[in-house]
Design a protein around this nucleic acid. Structure first.
Lengths: 340, 340
DNA sequence: CTATTTTACGAAAACGGTTTCGTGTTAATA
DNA sequence: TATTAACACGAAACCGTTTTCGTAAAATAG
């Protein structure tokens, strides 16, 4: 009972006209007589004709698909970015193909290769940690050299010529640290990841700068550098056991809410005894007990902007190579894990 | 400097052979001499030839794309399902196009129409709440009638002929409620959504059944039915103010962790004074304070199974119409919001 | 009434592949 | 030596569109 899709050829045969006539009639071309147009359009409507996207893609070398390659989708931040991309892209008639690199260089490469052979009109990506560690961006360079536009967001590199969207991570960390110091905290710790992650590096810089600007020396023993953004409960527990601190800045919300728990387990009162701030204004931050003060990264905004930048490039005929980097301002969202 | 992709025709011209020869040579066809094959393959490798996916899709009417339409991606559950789908699909060489209906019937329809014209080989979906409320499944029926395979998961309907994957929601709620009763709780409340949501209905049934089986009457004042899965802090706060309860079962983790907070605000100790169980074993459940006992829905598993079912159908030539419904067992994950 | 312009349509190429079938050349067989 | 089979390749159709260009017939102009 499988009534397969009807094609132009089918309509042409049935109405005893040529395929070209049908095509034109459906596009309301001036070339076709009123009579014929009405006949064709009525027939098409009746049989619910819809042009085949693939054929159209092949013809005009445009797929109306956007490839999104991100390290993971479980971190709330990436989640919101995808939502922002989706929103803008769909409104513009584009579909979003999501691929997860899972922080793996190889997967990132494979995913890009899968998509780069005609499946998409452009890429929006955030680099995997492995890629940032390796500093190998050849897969990106190849793609851009083929004329496929790329927009990098959040985890970016300057070695690729493309548009970029980030928040001012350094400023975010700076503001947060400053906030902690203003509360009278003396021993502000930092839980971050290795410096190869671009965002972690910037945030560490912001933290350091804030301390120095306040005339406080940076003490290495107050900084915990985890290898990746992945949760390592043991490491954080150990850090707590061996460190005397009265405030913590964390590079994501997961580290932060987990820190809240450990702090409470160790008998600290949050925020009375210890203040904690995280990055990413997600579910965890909102619903943690106590709720978490965070640096909001405006992921949805970021997604929308990335999508707009990409689609503008895709639809711009003139292939002038002007690349811009958009820097969003982070916002400090005050909640109950700090004294406000 | 835009070196556009190289095509078969380019290779043919350069090597002074025909396009067909090149095509066959690259496929290592027996028809082509060793010499020619080597020449062609070397050339292709040198210029990094990759066949154009769109052309191939057009030719064999297979896109190797899967369309995923879900209500939202911020709920952890859908998130994990997408991850599962991605994982399986990618391993099989398929791409995943994610579309968000945002609980809107219209968006669901539009998204499906966008994809149903050749862009994908099949759909994996979970119905929007509006769709379940309207009970209008014509967009799904049209698609299946066109021979496009569909797999429904979690929020399903029996009115569409297709494969389905769900967890046994009733059992999950039953087990959870039973657990609460076994702890000696007498006034077990339920925070759920309107019955039109298939999962909410099943969970309410499980809750009811568990109470009745234990000889406890179901009291309407212990049940809060929110209109949708969206958070309504006021409603939950009111519920707390007007209800005397010593345990709550919530249909998602967000309602549950928020309930924990309100309970604590009202001076209850969790789990000593009140026990709380939610659905979805997500970040919130893991990192809430106290951590949340939940009914795990095994989203990733569900995604993998959905993807497998879909791809099996897509790749199965014989169009026998046998549809199966896979029911996964929920698991109760004990944490600190209940006495264990 | 002829010459020219519209009008309305069809043929064919193109997008980038795959695949069937035909054929000229060479080598093997009778 | 004549016949046939094997080999190696090319022409062309096809997937479903769009678009350019050519042209017969009808309409208008002269």
């Amino acid at each position: 009972m499988l009534k397969s899709k009807i094609t132009l050829k089918d309509i042409a045969r049935e109405l005893e006209v040529s395929v070209s006539t049908v095509s034109k009639a459906l596009k309301n071309s001036e070339e076709i007589s009123r009579d014929t147009k009405e006949k064709v359009q009525a027939f098409a409507r009746l049989y619910n004709y819809k042009p085949n996207n693939i054929a159209i893609s092949l013809k005009n070398k445009r797929t109306k698909n956007i490839g999104v390659v991100i390290p993971d989708i479980v971190h709330y931040f990436f989640n919101t970015v995808v939502r922002g991309i989706e929103k803008y892209a769909n409104a513009k008639g584009y579909n979003v193909i999501v691929c997860l690199s899972e922080e793996s260089f190889d997967k990132e490469v494979i995913n890009m290769e899968m998509l780069a052979n005609g499946s998409i009109d452009g890429f929006i990506m955030s680099l995997s940690s492995e890629t940032q560690a390796k500093k190998d961006y050849n897969h990106l360079k190849e793609v851009t050299q083929q004329g496929i536009p790329v927009v990098l967001f959040d985890r970016i590199t300057n070695e690729v010529d493309c548009d970029k969207v980030v928040i001012d991570d350094q400023l975010g960390a700076y503001t947060a640290t400053q906030k902690l110091l203003q509360q009278g905290r003396k021993r502000v710790a930092l839980i971050t990841t290795d410096d190869y992650l671009s965002v972690a590096k910037s945030r560490t810089e912001g933290y350091t700068k804030a301390l120095l600007d306040a005339g406080i020396p940076v003490r290495d023993e107050l900084i915990l550098k985890l290898p990746t953004m992945e949760m390592d409960e043991e490491a954080i527990r150990d850090f707590f056991n061996n460190t005397d601190m009265d405030a913590i800045l964390c590079v994501n919300e997961i580290f932060a809410v987990f820190s809240i728990r450990i702090a409470m387990e160790k008998g600290f009162k949050v925020p009375e005894d210890i203040s904690i701030i995280g990055f990413t204004d997600g579910m965890l931050a909102k619903y943690a007990n106590p709720s978490l003060t965070v640096v909001a990264q405006h992921g949805e905004r970021m997604g929308e902007i990335s999508a707009k930048m990409l689609i503008d490039k895709v639809e711009d005929e003139s292939d002038e190579e002007i690349f811009q980097t958009k820097i969003l301002e982070p916002t400090l969202v005050l909640r109950d894990s700090t004294i406000n």
